[in-house]
Amino acid sequence: METVYDALDAAHGGGGQWAFGTGFDDPLVGVDTTVPDGVDPADLGAYCLMLGDDALVLAQRLTEWITAAPELEEEVAFGNTALDLLGQARLLLARAGSVGVLGSSRDRASATVPDEDALAYFRDADEFRCTGLVAAVNGDFARTMVRLLVASTVRLAVLTRLRGSRDPVLAAVAAKGVHELAYHRDHAARWVLRLGDGTAESHSRAQAGVDAVWPHLTDLFTATDVEQRLAAAGVAVDPADVREEVHDVLATVLTRATLRVPDRPGDVPPRGRTGVHGPELTELLGTLQGLAREHPAATW
């Protein structure tokens, strides 16, 4: 089969510009993976799970749009965003595994399953540390774009600060991630503008999306003990620090989109970050994990 490809490469300069494949850049090449002094590896791993699970679960939600998007251009955009988040999830889960934070997953997954997959496929819902914001169902295109706007605004604010983390791995993941997140936020914001200020129908759908997503802000800015300890050690970001920035960005976009900005929901103690989830996460994981769990000894 080689001849076919050779002829093509020759015909097209072989630059590979158009082939987007499996070659994900590894931002950890040359990065020191030692745990910083004075940091409990269990805390570091738990924090990586929080950020990693957010990315994994949102990637899964966005992937649900593939073959169902409004236009082909949007199919491709959903694919790009999901691929970016999946890439971030893989690095963060692998980092959690490398510092020994694997929960019960190692008891269930066979030895040949890499850490990132053990964590993604063999933990139960109560071991996941994602927020309710990303676990919520998609709803229509408007609600999906509002959720993406909120989630990417929060994550961009966190990763922007995390570039200065004392943990070199988190810093490297954040440095790569901010470019991706800036694009996701931009794309979502453009759509929210168009839906909010488009037709009467799109406006009411967008407003309904905002109203449905807003309650999920309630536990986004309250830190867990892990985040507090790591933030004090210069490793993590205290989510309370990004609250004002996030609200400013969202208010700016929604106002320009002629949408009503709901009142800020009151802060409650962290739920998703401590493993408290609704049935929608269990359902999502049932789909995501089903096949891998059916064949625990298999290699893929």
Binding site: L288, A292, A298
Partner: peptide, 9 residues
């Protein structure tokens, strides 16, 4: 897509 059994796949 939603059921692929490893993150790489």
């Amino acid at each position: 897509l939603l059921r692929a059994p490893s993150l790489r796949r």
